[in-house]
């Protein structure tokens, strides 16, 4: 895996019904850095992450993890979904949620071993959640819930972390813990990719930035990408003709009809 980038996205296109969500997004990210995916609401940030993890089917495009397919690199890729996605009334405690991170390594009939438990314990301690291990998840605050999700990802012991808005709606303590976590991960040479919405903190928290708005605007080191011109392009509205025509293309089901490629 020496010189292959941890993540390489090639011409990824995603749609929702007929609406183009992302069109032809291509980029690659360097190893051992923190990467932010930034863009306005509805720009397709979360969809990009889901498309990368194949949770939302992409209509075209290729994603490579260290030069391999997702299937080959599943175990080294950890995904942290948005908090809203799950039923927080679910009868389960914090420890069990974190242990789920070990499931990629277990066969379906296997129970988590002592070793798995130690890994989960360490992950919880790293996120200062060990004291809450027996709590039912409904009894946690928003920030604590987020930390449980992060601990679960940590328990996967991956080398690439994809996180969907980890900073959304969390308290200051959690924010600090997450930043601390980023530092640790980077120190181990791991890569973190986050969907991020706060322009004020992007430059401070992240090394590398990907600007999108339905298509790729710019990607590169934070100080190069975060220019006024690029931000204007990202937040200054979309190319309406491009969008309209792409939608019309999907509506006509032309992409199915087209032979070849």
């Amino acid at each position: 895996m020496s010189n292959q980038p941890p993540l390489k996205v090639d011409q990824l296109s995603i749609r929702y019904h007929h609406k183009p969500v992302l069109t032809d997004v291509s980029f690659e990210i360097p190893p051992g850095q923190t990467v932010a995916i930034v863009g306005p609401n509805g720009a397709g940030k979360s969809s990009l992450l889901k498309g990368i993890m194949n949770l939302t089917p992409a209509i075209q495009g290729k994603v490579q993890f260290y030069g391999r397919t997702l299937e080959e690199k599943r175990l080294t890729t950890a995904y942290v979904p948005q908090r809203e996605e799950i039923d927080w009334d679910f009868p389960i405690n914090v420890m069990d949620v974190v242990l789920m991170g070990r499931h990629g390594q277990l066969k379906f009939w296997q129970r988590p071993s002592r070793c798995d438990r130690q890994i989960a314990e360490q992950a919880l301690k790293d996120l200062k959640m060990w004291d809450f291990r027996d709590r039912q998840i409904a009894q946690l605050s928003g920030g604590q819930q987020q930390r449980v999700f992060l601990a679960r990802a940590l328990a996967q012991q991956a080398s690439l972390y994809l996180m969907d808005e980890p900073f959304a709606g969390v308290d200051v303590a959690t924010e600090k813990t997450i930043i601390e976590l980023f530092k640790q991960l980077k120190a181990k040479g791991n890569t973190v990719v986050c969907v991020h919405h706060d322009l004020n903190t992007v430059g401070e928290y992240f090394d590398h930035v990907i600007l999108i708005n339905a298509r790729l605007i710019a990607a590169g080191p934070a100080h190069q990408v975060l220019t006024q011109a690029n931000l204007n392009k990202t937040y200054g509205g979309r190319l309406s003709l491009l969008n309209d025509l792409t939608e019309q293309m999907y509506r006509s089901r032309l992409d199915n009809a087209h032979p070849g490629d």
């Binding site: 032809d24 025509l245 019309q248 293309m249 006509s252 032309l254 992409d255 087209h258 490629d261």
Partner: peptide, 8 residues
Amino acid sequence: QAERIEHI
């Protein structure tokens, strides 16, 4: 892209 859009 143009291969497709040209038709519509």
